Simulated assay, not measured.
Amino acid sequence: MYLGVPKEVFPGEARVALTPESAKQLQKLGYDCLLQSGAGAAAGFSDAAYREAGVELLDTADALWAKADIIAKVRQPEDAEIGYLAKGKTLISFFNPGGNQDGLEKAKASGANVIAMEMVPRISRAQKMDALSSMANIAGYRAVIEAGNNFGRFFTGQITAAGKVPPAKVLVVGAGVAGLAAIGTSTSLGAVTYAFDVRPEVAEQVESMGAEFVYLDFKEEQQDGAATGGYASVSSPEFREAQLAKFRELAPDIDIVITTALIPNRPAPKLWLEDMVKAMKPGSVIVDLAAERGGNAEGTVADEKVVTENGVT
């Protein structure tokens, strides 16, 4: 049985669904592995490394989709890729069935099997297959590294013969998988780290990692922002106003803001507004992990570095 991996067609996507190491493991299970030539280059895996691992390389996507029984990829398939599906084939990828009705109908009409990786339940025994969490973990870590790269000072405080430098103050908005990874990285680098989330039960997790949970002075019966699958749910207008008021209070003192708030198949909620950006000190940094869905911060442009008039990156 052939398992094939095509080159990702989404602009800027560097990931690949098969590494030389995972190819060796799959071959032990009895699969023959195929790869479109160049598919791993952006991820740092050469065609030679795949050949050495026993992977057969094919020149074109057409050839790969035609020969493979199982196709594994990272991004949600585009229309042209769904057109390759046929009865008896199986596609394993992110698919977003909740917000990709058109793709779902086309896949159904093809007679193929589709396994949507974002539908893996977030439970202990499924952790090895929880691709959403593994990607979010990397994103949270990377957000702090990107912030540090764009921030002009130390994360940790410094006391030297030349003087004293205070530690950076970092606010992480959203303490899901990405947020907790960002908190862990930020605290390990020595920053004073704060975190906010609409789910009160995550306060203990935040504090166990050395950060301070930001509480709201807000009373509402059973205010709990948790939804199924570990995501936040939509907050009430009153809760949102209390949340924004707290962010306005914090903005002048915070050096780095990392926003991670997403609700599946909805535009990203706007949480860090223009007036908050203007209240921040020059040299401050905002890293918006919700950029692909419109961003949590006003002024965010996906995949672009924006510097405001008051010097906030």
Rank of each mutant, 00 (worst) to 15 (best):
residue 57 L to P: 15
residue 160 T to N: 15
residue 287 V to W: 03
residue 88 G to Y: 05
residue 75 R to K: 14
residue 9 V to D: 10
residue 109 A to R: 10
residue 85 L to P: 02
residue 269 P to A: 06
residue 95 F to Q: 05
residue 265 N to Q: 10
residue 230 G to T: 10
residue 247 F to I: 04
residue 62 D to R: 08
residue 52 E to R: 06
residue 256 I to P: 02
residue 47 D to I: 07
residue 27 Q to F: 04
residue 70 I to G: 01
residue 303 D to F: 07
residue 95 F to V: 12
residue 172 V to K: 01
residue 117 M to K: 01
residue 208 S to G: 08
residue 150 N to G: 10
residue 252 P to A: 04
residue 248 R to V: 00
residue 153 R to F: 14
residue 190 G to I: 05
residue 139 A to S: 14
residue 165 V to N: 04
residue 164 K to W: 15
residue 258 I to M: 07
residue 45 F to S: 08
residue 231 Y to R: 05
residue 164 K to F: 15
residue 39 A to C: 15
residue 251 A to L: 00
residue 6 P to S: 05
residue 162 A to L: 15
residue 290 A to R: 02
residue 188 S to R: 14
residue 167 P to Y: 08
residue 50 Y to C: 14
residue 20 P to E: 12
residue 236 S to M: 10
residue 57 L to D: 13
residue 161 A to E: 08
residue 153 R to M: 13
residue 40 G to S: 13
residue 132 L to Y: 13
residue 82 I to W: 01
residue 308 T to N: 01
residue 143 A to T: 05
residue 41 A to N: 14
residue 269 P to Y: 01
residue 64 L to D: 01
residue 162 A to K: 07
residue 61 A to Q: 07
residue 117 M to P: 09
residue 98 G to L: 11
residue 212 E to I: 11
residue 93 S to T: 07
residue 92 I to P: 10
residue 53 A to E: 07
residue 242 A to M: 07
residue 254 I to F: 07
residue 58 L to W: 11
residue 25 Q to V: 08
residue 231 Y to V: 04
residue 257 V to C: 02
residue 220 E to L: 03
residue 186 S to G: 10
residue 132 L to D: 08
residue 250 L to C: 09
residue 59 D to T: 14
residue 59 D to M: 02
residue 258 I to A: 06
residue 206 V to C: 12
residue 155 F to I: 15
residue 66 A to W: 04
residue 202 V to E: 02
residue 107 A to Y: 05
residue 299 G to R: 00
residue 237 P to Q: 06
residue 112 A to W: 01
residue 118 E to I: 02
residue 96 N to Q: 12
residue 250 L to D: 12
residue 195 A to E: 07
residue 45 F to W: 10
residue 220 E to K: 05
residue 47 D to F: 12
residue 186 S to P: 09
residue 279 A to G: 04
residue 294 G to P: 06
residue 117 M to Y: 06
residue 70 I to D: 08
residue 263 I to L: 05
residue 18 L to G: 12
residue 156 T to A: 15
residue 298 E to H: 00
residue 82 I to S: 02
residue 233 S to A: 11
